[in-house]
Design a protein around this nucleic acid. Structure first.
Lengths: 100, 100
DNA sequence: CTGTATCCCGTCTGATACTG
DNA sequence: CAGTATCAGACGGGATACAG
């Protein structure tokens, strides 16, 4: 939770589920994230072994981000939580209205 | 994740699994949390419908916190994530060492 | 006992501009 | 294209003291 509970890590994880992606591709897929923050997020996830960063020495430069086995293995557990959230978000919102 | 990904919510959830608890009881069980922050945490969880706060008009005052059905229903999904974390924490730590 | 009131600091996140 | 540099705001969390 400490590692993927931030604002963007989970969206990166979901975006990369379909296969490797490049920096800009990832950025537009997610939407609303600045390059600085996306870089921070990706580097942290790389350090945790959730994804790999591969640089191709080309012109123009190309960098691909790919989920590791560890990263892919997170999808199962997270989807369990996601399912719970989807099933209960309505009740939670209803509950919060009472306090407004 | 937005709601229970903070520093203390999950510990509250786990602590209350065994049944209702009072403020101070909860505080010493968790350990290291100041009254202000614990109050913030509990109020947020109450608003989300994860627990109820019941005040008893006694001397000395008594307040009990109890998990709702919604709160209890979170244990399953979270334990799935917890299991994943326990099984993979070693590999994650090993990975982080490479970058140090 | 169960909190509230203040003050404070570090971190997260973002806007904007710039670079190899 | 894929970032880095810089500045700044908002927020979570903590220390301490006080109150009903």
């Amino acid at each position: 939770m400490d590692r993927i509970g931030d604002k963007w890590s989970m969206l990166v994880l979901l975006s990369l589920k379909g296969g490797p992606m490049r920096f800009t591709q990832l950025r537009s897929r997610i939407g609303g994230v600045t390059p600085k923050v996306l870089t921070q997020t990706l580097r942290a996830m790389e350090q945790d072994g959730l994804l790999t960063r591969e640089v191709f020495a080309e012109v123009p430069p190309r960098v691909e981000y790919t989920l590791t086995g560890l990263g892919r293995s997170l999808h199962g557990p997270l989807s369990v939580v996601a399912t719970w959230a989807e099933q209960n978000v309505a009740e939670i919102l209803r509950c919060r209205e009472k306090f407004s």
